[in-house]
Design a protein around this nucleic acid. Structure first.
Lengths: 154, 154
DNA sequence: AAACATAGGTGTACTATACAACTATTGCTA
DNA sequence: TAGCAATAGTTGTATAGTACACCTATGTTT
């Protein structure tokens, strides 16, 4: 049998699960009960501005219906709102509300704290290699993979 | 705002999600519909033999009740069974059935295929650094962390 | 023996996930 | 340009995973 613990996969799973859990419970300890999935959406919106559902589904690698439900919840909690795209009336554009923007100040330091804690005793070079490797692995898997929209080669 | 994409966390989440999804769908394409969580439990049992619920909760970083439900399902599907621990009658020991053992031959090659696919174009050194780094990060977070049992300092 | 700790299970509730099927648009092409 | 195909998003429905609060049974400590 192969030595699973010597392979990044095992740790990707383990650490991924752990991070999600830690983030969620750290957020819940504040007055903002943000889930890890909501956090992922917020990150995109903070960095890239308003996005369509399809775009969000793509970057989060989730089904469009999952995104719909997720955004439903975030609208209910008034973190984001939906507007119509003026150029394409099928499309609705998800944008941050004032409250959604303000969450950044509260949440980012928490995430940074966790990152700092996790990175203790690890050299910047190793962190960089790890980041690159994980990114490459992600791309390898996503390559030639079905997406949510079919305009892959666009 | 910090550059999240330059940090391993982002990719741990993304890749972790992707791997779980890929594994699940690859398994579902066979005659064995094994979930990623069941896979994680099976891995432990294959490698380390019979385990108590608490031990499984510890390595999978899940709540004991979650493990109970997970094992319930696996017992129903006859992958594992529960036996009493002769030395401690509170404890029940989860062990593989014949069927559970046999899954190894079917499932491991699938996982290895995914690993090979993901690792394309990455040097063994980088893979090793990544594995070490992720392991260290996991340990950093788990350190001084509440566990399922309270015998932490044991 | 009493108090405490641990192993595990139940009740309950909620989140995330996604397949199938649907409507409303837009784009393409014959 | 008329009609068909593709796209964006939603709803119905079903399922898995998660965990809190609380419970019982057993073992440990003082």
């Amino acid at each position: 049998m192969f030595d699973y613990e010597k392979i990044p996969f095992h740790w990707v799973n383990r650490l991924g699960f752990l991070v999600r859990k830690e983030l969620t419970s750290a957020f819940r300890a504040t007055e903002y009960a943000i889930s890890a999935e909501e956090w992922a959406i917020l990150l995109v919106l903070w960095r890239k501005g308003p996005q369509s559902h399809s775009a969000l589904a793509d970057v989060t690698i989730k089904d469009r219906t999952t995104v719909t439900r997720l955004i439903d919840g975030m609208v209910r909690k008034e973190m984001v709102n939906r507007a119509e795209d003026s150029t394409d009336r099928r499309r609705s554009v998800v944008a941050l509300t004032e409250y959604g923007h303000s969450l950044q100040g509260a949440l980012v330091p928490i995430a940074q704290g966790l990152i700092t804690r996790a990175s203790a005793g690890i050299s910047p070079e190793d962190l960089a290699v790890t980041q690159r490797t994980l990114q490459k692995m992600t791309e390898n898997i996503l390559e030639a993979q079905p997406r949510n929209t079919k305009d892959i080669g666009k």
